[in-house]
Design a protein around this nucleic acid. Sequence first.
DNA 1: GCACGTGATGTAAACGTTTTCCAAAAGCCT
DNA 2: AGGCTTTTGGAAAACGTTTACATCACGTGC
Lengths: 347, 347
Amino acid sequence: MSISSNSLPNDIRRVAAEAGVSIATVSRVFNNPNRVSAKTRRRVLETAARLDYRPNLMGQNLRKGRAQAVGVVIPTPQGRFSDPFFLELLTGLGEGLAEAELDLLVTTCPPGPQELACYQRLVESKRVDALVIARTRRHDERIRYLLQRQTPFVAHGRSDQISQPYAYLDMDGRYGFYLACKHLLGLGHRRIAFIGVSSELNFAHYRLEGYQQALAEVGLIPDPGWILEGDLSEESGYRLTQTLLATTLPPTAILCANDLMALGALQALRELDFKAGQEVSVIGYDDIPLSQYTDPPLSTVHQPIRKMGQRLVEMLLARLNGVAVAELQEVWVPELVLRRSDGAPPV
Amino acid sequence: MSISSNSLPNDIRRVAAEAGVSIATVSRVFNNPNRVSAKTRRRVLETAARLDYRPNLMGQNLRKGRAQAVGVVIPTPQGRFSDPFFLELLTGLGEGLAEAELDLLVTTCPPGPQELACYQRLVESKRVDALVIARTRRHDERIRYLLQRQTPFVAHGRSDQISQPYAYLDMDGRYGFYLACKHLLGLGHRRIAFIGVSSELNFAHYRLEGYQQALAEVGLIPDPGWILEGDLSEESGYRLTQTLLATTLPPTAILCANDLMALGALQALRELDFKAGQEVSVIGYDDIPLSQYTDPPLSTVHQPIRKMGQRLVEMLLARLNGVAVAELQEVWVPELVLRRSDGAPPV
DNA sequence: GCACGTGATGTAAACGTTTTCCAAAAGCCT
DNA sequence: AGGCTTTTGGAAAACGTTTACATCACGTGC
């Protein structure tokens, strides 16, 4: 509010001078309030307020050897748009971090070899205290790197090929798609296709397994031509669905490894005049907010993304407070939410 | 790669020692390479590479008095999910910033009185060098504040009640909805409703004006009951559409101030068994990526969000390089993209 | 009355850089 | 060789904090 009389740098020195104390005292007022007498404390607080003083974060951080920030890098595929999943995750993270006085440093990076460099920059220039990593891969060099650097992090998703323990929060994707596939089988489907993505992505691997397991239990082995690999974009879901339906005996149901691809699938069905949910069933995965507004509303495997974001922050804070990683490994059980994009196969 | 022999702090001092020069020289190698002879430069670079040295950003920033980051705070409505708009904007921003070696500091904040405090913290603790502000309001305290603090920023959207010039990039929303409404009129619609949002939001104000202007040109004044205020959420679009259709002579077309509300509108129509695009037309605004996957695909006013993000960064950098704000004010012309959610009114 | 804890403050050394100023070295030209 | 400019490198002072340590005054118990 009040504009300071002269416009000297508004640093701790100025507050000290105006309050007639040393800068150490000012600092103590903020960091260790009961180490300074009530009288001077009050005086310092007053002048600080009057001058709109706020400690310079760079000074603080340099001295304290921290960054007061956690990083997250979101993969941004070139032309396509990013998965709404990340926005939800981000807001989940943001809410928790604000309370802990931490900021969120968001870097975007096209997936590929440059990605690791991105993490390295953040870590090695000490720009962040910790990281959240998402979309883990089976052989995840990011995790390997962070472990080796001993940089705290939590992962959204596991990484199977890493032996050393680390903190993660994952959904049981195998169970999720086991459930979904079981459900389709129960409805009478026998020709069920799977639109996935490179099994190098850890979650894709599990989701595929769930699908296969459910089929195996009823003695079915899927036609290899029905297990396709997309790239998580709605466009690839669209394209692959088209090819699936072009076959002589097309599947009556399609499991998509994420909602975005499921959206593409629905679109393809629509254009080919297939009634989704009646002639061909589609089930997605993620339950991104928009999946309830598609036509028909998408049946999918629900992931409480925002809540996961919040929990990830809790885990990260625990990690920063020295809680052992062994206690910071969680796998949540997803649930199937049925809307209108699934149904019995045509007779 | 190579693990340094002893594990002393990997700072500039160590590089200097191992290279047999002073720290000043090391620093110069990175900041002012041609002030040091080729021979020593090579030697320093070698040892730096060998030790995996990377300047500590906090040290750098403290010294240089900057933060090497720009902030953006995204409003996160409580229960609802955030507008996909922001994810697109974020990735647009991210791409440009990476090149300029700047990081993006994302803070989430529920809209309301705490919002300004959020900006203040970022600015006054010198955590960011500049800010991007989105969703400007007609009386925008954030802009006022940043102007007063002389903190560089660019706004996505104008703020009409601010007299002092500032950098902005906006779409001509009035024209956008003028176009849309004109189009509906051309199709024969006469009962056109508008689902907006508080005119305190600057863009809402303009979009409403465009709608009114188009109607006025053909001598129509809208039934006041057809101008409704939502809150930008799909849920409010859904609800308001229901009330619109519950009237005895419901509108044959609905203009929605953003795509999210339009999605809700489509959903409401579907549930009431109205054929969207045939019985009732719906036009949205933003062209968020998913609007082409709704049913029917949404006709909307296109905003090149990601591109705007990139341009905002360019403007910000220009601003930081001292370009006058007068040169950094742009209003882009939107275009109407017609998909399937509009059509002639029933006869 | 004296040594002694105790509580409140100040002093100064960090934290890891950049950059200003100097001094030394090295060219270059008569 | 002598004087000049130009390169090159080092010493040291910042940048704004925090914090270990020293200081000092003030009871307090003996």
